[in-house]
Simulated scan of single mutants.
Amino acid sequence: MALISGMPEGQYADLPNGQRMHYQDLGPRDGVVAVFLHGSGSGASGHSNFKANYPVLVEQGYRVIVPDLLGYGYSAKPTDVDYHLDLFVECIKQTLDVIGVENFTLIGNSLGGAIALRFALDYPAQTEKLVLMAPGGIEEQANYFTMPGMQMMKEVFTSADPVTPAKMRSFFETAFLVDPGCLDEQTVQERWESMQTQNPHVVKTMVVPNMEHELKNLQCPVLVFWGMNENMMPETGIMKLAKNCSNSRVILVSECGHWVMMEHAAMFNRMTLDFLANG
């Protein structure tokens, strides 16, 4: 696979289910482990979502694992599977088994947040903590597509007109962000290049069930960030998480859209480090 400008290539895990997953594994091998799970969308990858975050955890002595989800980044992009939430979870589980880590905190935004929730419900003994940024998986799937950002995504990325870097930037600034200044050209370029390697099968077959009624079964501490200018996820999710997760704290961030970890990186990093250390 051709390398994408500015997007580092790490290691690969060949999974028992036949898929190949790309990941970065950084920091001391005896460090407490944090796993970053990125969201969906054209050109998404672990590095592009969390480049302002995971190096900070490494600097603080954590072992950080940043995979590209199946269908994204440098990971395999099969066209003969349906991209159900359970498949994403299976691939993350098998990747972490291949790496040889047993216990960890999962840090996920959007689709990555839904994967983190499902993983924590299925493998509570391995999931020490959850950090979620406007996670999916807590609404009926149709409800997400009523959101203005989702409607804009459909319009931009299913149009007959080609998606240029400029069009991609405009979409991110409008649908994901309040402050366009936090989006650098390198991120736009790497996401645009990464998008060229994707196939539409991922979005066409993606199914993320509603886990709202299972939230009460979560056993680990949960930290939630939610931007008050969120255009992708219905804000009913805020109270669902706050009321149903028995050991949770929810941080509402003003002047913030879908990418709190990018738009308010310093605050996100500071509060995440405190949560990792103190719960």
Rank of each mutant, 00 (worst) to 15 (best):
K204H: 11
P165F: 02
V207K: 11
T197G: 09
P165W: 01
N231Q: 14
M153G: 11
V207W: 02
K204Y: 07
M206S: 06
M228E: 15
E139C: 08
V163H: 06
E140I: 00
Q151A: 14
T158R: 12
E193K: 04
E155D: 13
K204I: 02
T236D: 13
Q196S: 13
E155K: 13
V222Y: 11
L218T: 04
C182G: 13
Q189M: 08
V224S: 12
K204S: 08
L183D: 02
V222D: 09
M211L: 13
T197A: 12
L218M: 10
A160C: 11
F176T: 02
N217E: 14
G137S: 11
D161W: 10
L218Q: 08
W192E: 07
V250C: 12
K204V: 04
V224E: 04
M195G: 12
V224K: 05
A242S: 13
I238W: 07
C245F: 02
M153L: 06
C182S: 14
K240D: 11
F225H: 07
A142R: 13
T187I: 01
A166W: 02
T205Q: 10
C245S: 06
K243H: 03
I138N: 06
E155I: 03
L177A: 12
V163I: 14
N229S: 12
E190G: 04
C182K: 14
A166R: 10
D161I: 03
L218Y: 03
T197R: 15
V202G: 01
A142N: 13
I138T: 07
E235P: 09
A242P: 04
N217I: 01
V207Q: 11
K204E: 15
E140V: 03
T146W: 03
M232V: 04
V156S: 01
T174S: 14
I138S: 04
S159Q: 09
W226P: 06
E190M: 15
D179W: 01
M211F: 10
R249M: 07
S159K: 06
A175H: 00
C182D: 10
M147N: 00
M211D: 09
K216A: 14
Q219A: 09
E212D: 13
E212L: 14
W192M: 05
Q198I: 03
E155N: 10
G137D: 06
V208L: 05
L223H: 08
F172H: 02
V222Q: 13
G149W: 02
N210Q: 12
E235M: 11
F171H: 05
V250L: 14
K216G: 15
N229W: 03
G237I: 01
H213N: 15
